[in-house]
Amino acid sequence: MRDAPRQPQTLRLPASRLAELESWAVEGTGRAAAARVRDSAGRLALVRNEWADGWFLPGGGVEAGETARAAARREVREETGLDAEVGEPLVVLDQQYCGEDGDKWFTAEYAVFDARADGEITGADALGVHDGEILDARWFESLPEQFHERELLAPYLQE
């Protein structure tokens, strides 16, 4: 991912949420991957999850021994039911996780890949790794106003 543009991102979260994520960042890979999945009609696949408001790119943590590209493909399948062809990275976010008081806890890396897939998105009751993880998943004609991290990611998601 050397050729992908990089952007800094600071995430301010409650200490309880940071404590949940800390083992992933410190003892785990500290890496996450997502995909901008478009179909042949140019629609965008997005998901809504249990832990935050708004719509997100399908994605999640990179597992030990897994490449970021493979993680993006796996996460798209788990969160939408689509079998995506994952291409090159569009952007990499260098994340700094901080407490609500601004104290730095840990860093992580979040890569967003270009991807293509066609087909129907699976119903939300059959998506995610555990029940209720994915509340909704659907195709969009354009990026919705309620897209999470719209200001930061929108420039990289336009075609």
Rank of each mutant, 00 (worst) to 15 (best):
I134K: 00
S142M: 07
G119C: 01
Q9M: 14
R6I: 02
R74V: 09
R2A: 12
V37H: 06
G28W: 09
D103L: 05
R77G: 02
E20G: 06
L44D: 12
A34P: 00
E20V: 15
G59Y: 05
L13T: 00
A84V: 07
G128E: 09
E141T: 15
R77Q: 11
I121R: 06
Q96K: 07
A108R: 02
W51V: 08
G119T: 04
R69Q: 13
A137E: 11
E88V: 13
G87I: 01
R43W: 05
E151I: 04
D131N: 01
H148W: 14
V112N: 02
E133W: 15
E141K: 11
T107Y: 13
E79Q: 13
V129C: 04
T122V: 12
C98H: 01
W24N: 10
G59H: 10
E88Q: 10
L82V: 10
P155T: 14
L18T: 02
P89D: 04
A35Y: 06
A34I: 00
A64H: 14
Q9A: 14
G28R: 00
D83E: 14
P144L: 01
I134A: 01
L152F: 08
A115N: 07
F113L: 03
T107K: 05
A71E: 00
L93N: 08
A115T: 08
A25H: 02
V129D: 04
G128S: 12
G102F: 14
P5A: 04
G119F: 05
R36G: 03
T80C: 07
A45Q: 02
R69E: 13
E75I: 03
A111V: 14
E85G: 07
R150W: 05
V91W: 02
R17F: 08
A124Y: 11
D83W: 08
V92M: 13
E63N: 12
Y156S: 13
G87V: 00
P155R: 12
A45V: 06
A115K: 05
E27F: 14
A68G: 10
E50D: 15
G60D: 06
A35Q: 06
Q7Y: 08
A68H: 04
H148N: 13
L152W: 07
E149G: 04
A34R: 03
D136T: 11
H130T: 15
I121V: 11
N49M: 05
A35G: 08
A19H: 09
L93R: 10
S142T: 14
F140K: 10
A70I: 09
F147Q: 02
A126H: 15
Y97K: 13
P144M: 03
V112P: 01
G128M: 10
V62T: 09
